[in-house]
Design a protein around this nucleic acid. Structure first.
Lengths: 160, 160
DNA sequence: TGTCGATAGTTCACACGTAATCTATCTGAC
DNA sequence: GTCAGATAGATTACGTGTGAACTATCGACA
């Protein structure tokens, strides 16, 4: 009897309970392995994946952003943002500035050194992207993205 | 110009740099949303995803296992296992027993109450599986699993 | 004007994941 | 037999994700 790839990776003795379970575990497993690789790359630049993500979002926006808006573009909950930003600020990658019109909001701005750092990371990051899934054909990548987007339809509405 | 689904979810203004990036972000995003849902379900039973995973591996094996073997079937590194097992032991879900032949290894065993708990969780867990990706056709699920397995080929060999 | 509810951000407490380091034990070569 | 290196776990330190509760501020309505 031929086991499939994931079953071997997890040293699972029995087949999966359902195709749903198999697909879900494949997603979890793939994510985990890829996250590991990204984590290792980012660590070379003294960043974590989350920190890189924040910096990248800020660069994409091109101008200062409130904490909350950054949090919305990540998956993250607000409370985690505070500590994340604390560390980025301590490292000199961002600056905080309180908005004068609405004193509740704090604007986050990239520093020049962070912009430099991002520029230096661009090539290695793209290279890793390519290394990780560059062996899929363009059609397969599109198919994969489409299937994952369809899968996510089941969680689109966030219950409060 | 029509943006795609992921771009909207992330409020990304510009298109992705590459199909690779898009596919990778889709994996990360999907994983995150699904993990959230599982986390919420497990919390109702006072477990975290990792804890549930450990218990489930132990049930699948059917007999006591050394810490390390459990760690290998999860993605996790060993040091994290210690604390994880500490908490499971404190909750009465597992028992630790030192092996008499090789006194370095510690065997982990499920308690009866943990087996009960797992039984009670089976239905809700399967239901969530189905709710999350039951709307894909069987063909699509197979395709998704196959694509993810192919994607993982790039990280099969673990550099020490 | 004053008060009430909403909102932005913070703080705290807890469970992880990862790396580095340590201890106890085993194994194999000499 | 003994000692060196390997192996199983534990410990510590740090960054992160989550929930609950708190503070400061804003806006709207009586």
């Amino acid at each position: 009897m031929s086991k499939n790839q994931l079953q071997n990776e997890l040293k699972k003795k029995r087949p999966f309970d359902s195709p749903e379970q198999e697909a879900l575990l494949n997603i979890l497993r793939t994510n985990d392995q890829f996250q590991n690789r990204f984590g290792r790359l980012f660590r070379e630049f003294d960043l974590t994946a989350s920190q890189y993500n924040v910096l990248r979002i800020l660069r994409g926006e091109g101008k200062p952003m409130p904490c909350q808006e950054i949090g919305e573009r990540m998956i993250q909950v607000v409370p985690a943002m505070t500590g994340l930003l604390d560390r980025l600020e301590a490292q000199g990658h961002i600056r905080r500035e309180r908005c004068t019109e609405d004193r509740r909001v704090v604007y986050i701005e990239l520093t020049d050194s962070a912009k430099d750092l991002l520029r230096r990371m661009d090539a290695p990051v793209n290279e890793l992207h390519h290394q990780l899934i560059g062996h899929l054909t363009p059609t397969e990548m599109k198919q994969l993205s489409r299937l994952l987007e369809k899968a996510r339809l089941s969680v689109q509405s966030k219950p409060p």
